[in-house]
Structures are given as C-alpha cells and as structure tokens.
Design a binder for these strands. Structure first.
Lengths: 196, 196
DNA sequence: CGCGTGATTGAAACCCTTCAAGTTTAGTGG
DNA sequence: CCACTAAACTTGAAGGGTTTCAATCACGCG
C-alpha cells in the first residue's frame, strides 16, 4: 500500500520504509459514500480509521434523540471509538462519512506490532493520545463557560478547513448550540465585520 | 516508602514488590495544607501527584476571571497537567489542595523507568489514559446538551464521595453552572423527593 | 462573639432555544 | 440541463432555563 498513511507514518511517526513493509499487510483501504456508517452505536469498534480523503464525524444520540458530535476527522486524522476499542465494549457512537471518503482501516494488531518494532512509533502514539486529551480539555473549558459566539470563533480558528466543508447544523451540534443560534451568531459577526 | 501508592501499584498496575523497590527512590511524599498550590498557571508541570489523603482540584481562569474546574482528585487518584508535562510547556492550570492533603510526588522518570521494567505497568498506563479519555468524552456529551439538573445528577452518581467533601460552588464550577443555579437545582430535587 | 465564606432565595435581565414560516441551496430524475 | 424536491439556512416572535445582582441566612473559625 502506498498512500498518505504511509507517508504520514514515515514523516510523523518515524517509521522506516522497512518497518512499514512489515506492517503493510495489516492494513486495508475502504471507500465509503457520503452518509455511510463505519461504526454504529451498539457495535464494538474493531478498527481505527485514518482518513485518506474525505470527512467523517463521530456522534452520539442522547435520550432526547438529539445528536451530539464528539469529533470530526478530515484528511490525515484518525477516528475511532477508543473506549470501545480499548475496553472491548459496545460503542455509544456512530461514525459516519459526511463526504465520499477513502479510509485506511487499521486493526489493533497494527498498533501492537508497530509499538513492538518501533520505539519512535511508541512515542508518536503517546503524543497522539496526549494531543487528543489536550484538545478535549480545551473543549471542556469552552463548554463550561464560553458564549455561543466565542465557541464558534474558537472552532473556526482551530479548524478553518472544516468550516468550509461541514454543514452549519453539524458545526452547531459540535458546539452544543442550535442551528438557529449559530446562524444568528454568524449574522452578528458579519454585520460587525462590515462596520469595521 | 510504604503507603497507599505502593499497594495501589501492586494491586492495580501489577508491579511486583521487587520492581517497586527499584522505583521507590524516585518518589517523595509531600504534605500540603488546604489552599496550597502544587502547580500554578504559567509554571511547567514537572510531576504527577498521587493523592494519598485529601482532595485537590485543577482549574483554569478564563479571560473574564472565571474559574473552571477541569478535575477533582481524591484518594487513589492521579492529578497533573498532562499537556504541560508531555509537551514541556507552561500550564494553563492551577492545582490546589482543597483539604489538607498528603501526596506522592511522581516525576516523569518514575513512569519511564516503570514502563521499562514492567509490561503490566505499560498496560496499566494505557488503561489510565483511555479511562481518562472516556471520562472526558462523557463530560463533553453532557456539556453539549444536558440541563443543569442532569449534569448534577450524573456528577453525584459518578462521584458520590466528592459530593460530600467539596463545596457546592466548586461543584457548580465543575458543572459549568452558577452556584445559585446549583442551589436551585438541589432545592427542586429535594422537593420532588419529599413528594415521592 | 463577630467576621468571612458558603448557601439560599427573589426579581429582573439575558442568552439561547423552540416553534413556525419563508428563503436559499443542493441533489435527483426526467 | 432544466425542473422539482428535499435539505439547509435564515429570520421572527415567544418562551424557558440560567445568569446576574442583591439581600438574607447559616455556619465554622479565630
């Protein structure tokens, strides 16, 4: 397999081409159409997905039937339900393609083997986990106290690319506000922009 | 050193007494009074703390001067700023004792050495990270959509012990609501309880 | 005993949601 | 490629949950 993921591992994780050759057989490519699910609530999550092309979202549905988006993933991002994977329990999340997408399917054995043969992969993996935690912490702080406007501004600062490719109602679901509120926030920002 | 932490490591992390003897020299005990800080925003976090006795909180202060509690830690919990530790950057958090407390100070070398000599410690550490992520995910979902009442009920379900030892305004800060709102939520719950 | 911190309660204000209607955009099939 | 339809976005008005501000009460500690 010769793709973004290979390049990514070599550049970011310090995997050598020889090491990658050892790992290659664990991997497979998967094409999914917009709207397709790669994980549904109730299923056990078996794999991590690396986004070669496209965008996915992970979301849960609460007892009132409302969707809450926990994560987006576009090119060069990983997406999975770590809890389901690690603790081998049914997932609470749906993972869905929101564009036609191409994914690398990464089973757990890949990570185990990679960690075994490469010290720099172990470091990379630690880094990934810590980055994930850092992002979630920042998000919690915002959700604890920031207004709809501040949350939105932080979002587009952090994910400028996503803002253009993801529908507004999904962004509002990620931010914890209604689509109507987001629309009004954007209107307000646009008006203030025009004045300055 | 012979303390809760030793027992904890042996029982939960699968460290043998012999292995612990090798690690012991990295550790030290620290007593802190109620109100004392073990980390302040702007400092680099150098250590992880294991709570032998007492309670601590980690919080940040936003641009409006409001405190947001990101984590509590009572007996047998770890507390630190992983991001500051891992990325060696100044912390955004304050870590403060909210009771007189006794802590085990765990420098990073401890974790490195432990990971080196014990496979089961490596697993334990992975488990810890994943549990941490799981908790944060659940919290984000609640913050995205749940009412003040639901958040509070989930909190006391998850941390029944903390509810009794932590002041109400700190709980409200953890939940992302005002102390007044929490007071009203509790009143409402008490009234409903009396009726049933 | 008195002071300070935390908790409670009330009233008004505010931000955001809800509901409803209208407009725009995007996707689909003829 | 246009026409049609559904989905997404916008806008308005009303309502609700939470905050804010202020006053009062309860309690632990010096």
């Amino acid at each position: 397999m010769n793709n973004n993921f290979r390049t990514y591992l070599i550049e970011k994780a310090g995997i050598t081409p020889e090491e990658f050759a050892e790992l290659d057989s664990y991997l497979s490519l998967k094409s999914v159409a917009k709207g397709d699910f790669v994980l549904q609530a109730g299923q056990k999550c078996r794999d991590t997905f690396f986004v070669e092309q496209g965008i996915l979202r992970a979301y849960s549905i609460d007892s009132n039937g409302k969707e809450h988006i926990i994560q987006f993933a576009s090119e060069d991002w990983f997406i999975s339900d770590r809890s389901s994977l690690f603790f081998d329990k049914p997932s609470d999340f749906y993972i869905q393609a929101i564009e036609d997408s191409v994914l690398v399917v990464i089973p757990n054995e890949f990570f185990e083997k990679a960690a075994k043969i490469s010290a720099s992969f172990r470091k990379f993996n630690q880094r990934l986990l810590n980055t994930h935690i850092l992002h979630m912490q920042k998000r919690i702080i915002l959700l604890l106290g920031a207004s709809a406007e501040t949350r939105y501004l932080e979002f587009i600062k952090l994910y400028p690319d996503l803002q253009l490719r993801v529908s507004q109602w999904m962004i509002s679901s990620y931010l914890g506000i209604t689509p109507e509120s987001l629309s009004r926030v954007r209107k307000e920002l646009a008006e203030r922009d025009r004045e300055n």
